[in-house]
């Protein structure tokens, strides 16, 4: 399947998830800068999910901890003092899960791909050979990396 098609559907999924679950409009950026430059924050977090099937594909989402806190508060409908790391991580993983799940549903009608379980990465590791989607919401800059293995 064409990389270009994956990226286009992925962008639609990012917009759909942020609009439906967070009421946030997403704007995509065309830029040659790196994820690190784009996010420009010291506290970036990464969650990844592996899709296995005719081709293995890894998706990684990068969001700053500050933006994640705000997203978690909005997503869970709780106050800041009720937030903990578990809730933030769960929200983060669920965002990636919804984006990738929706993408697969659109592209894989025969169910050849299997969606893994999202994991929080202990260290941020931006794949060098991945396709990067840079985008922003009202909260912050964010990035998604797709690596075709």
């Amino acid at each position: 399947m064409e990389k270009k098609k994956w990226i286009q559907v992925m962008k639609n999924s990012i917009s759909d998830v942020f609009e439906k679950m967070f009421f946030e409009l997403v704007q995509f950026m065309e830029s040659d800068i790196s994820v690190q430059e784009w996010l420009n924050k010291p506290d970036i977090k990464q969650t990844s999910i592996l899709i296995t099937g005719p081709q293995n594909i890894q998706f990684s989402l990068f969001i700053s901890n500050d933006a994640l806190k705000e997203l978690s508060i909005a997503f869970l409908g709780i106050e800041e003092d009720q937030l903990d790391t578990q809730k933030i991580d769960d929200t983060f993983k669920e965002i990636l899960n919804m984006i990738t799940g929706r993408t697969i549903s659109q592209l894989d009608s025969e169910g050849q791909f299997h969606l893994g379980i999202p994991q929080i990465e202990t260290e941020v590791n931006i794949p060098q050979d991945g396709e990067i989607i840079l985008f922003e919401t009202e909260k912050d800059h964010m990035a998604l990396c797709i690596t075709f293995e």
């Binding site: 899960n97 919804m98 990738t100 799940g101 929706r102 697969i104 549903s105 894989d108 009608s109 025969e110 169910g111 969606l115």
Partner: peptide
Amino acid sequence: ISTEGSEKRIKE
């Protein structure tokens, strides 16, 4: 209630 919504999964 799932992110997995391919026709095959729905059929299963």
